[in-house]
Amino acid sequence: MKANSPAERLYNGIIKENPTFVMMIGMCPTLAVTTSATNGIGMGLTTLVILTLSNMMISMLRKMIPDGVRMPAYIGVVASFVTIVQLLLQGYIPSLYDSLGIYIPLIVVNCIILGRAEAFAGKNPVIPSLFDGLGMGLGFTIGLTCIGAVRELIGAGQLFGFQILPESYEPVTIFIMAPGAFFVLALLVAVQNYVKGRKAAKGQPVPESSCGQGCGSCGNTACSGKKL
């Protein structure tokens, strides 16, 4: 695929650099809102919209923003879109607004959004940035929905609110509580480590993930301790 073509950007976001399963960034909302598949998809789509809009806007402004103040400028752009989306959700989908609560304004500090602004949108034209945001957003949505579905199925016997498992199944409620989030993520990283270990043993290239170094390598200069 041609570099920076729309299809390549979508593939990159959904498969190759999937933010949840490969890059392991944006973990705060991933753990907090995936108590059900519905919440996961809602949070994913909200982030998708904000990511796409902010990528487009930052890409349009990339020649106007001086290098020295680019982080505050990016944060300003992202915070504005978050505010707009928050008000729209409050007005039109109040049930989602209530269940996501404080995690909607916290999208501002989501590593994925500032990370993509810094790594891609600040250097590339508008159309690739648009598809980069769409791809990353879809990858994030898929990740959150999968984790949410697993937790909801085990923790409540349901999927998207419909009873899937028979009545005789005793739900393991702890999976939809806070400890369950840590447990599911621990297993996810363990599987990822295992796959990487096998790939390394065969001498294949191992994709880099930011996990284990905290925020230091999430591609976001504001995270890695540099000044704004």
Partner: peptide, 22 residues
């Protein structure tokens, strides 16, 4: 265990602490 070294075991510890805090 090898696959659990690093982050996974830390997350499992966090899980146990989280249960204690509930």
């Amino acid at each position: 265990p090898k696959a659990f070294q690093g982050m996974p075991i830390v997350l499992l510890t966090a899980m146990l602490m989280s249960i204690a805090f509930t």
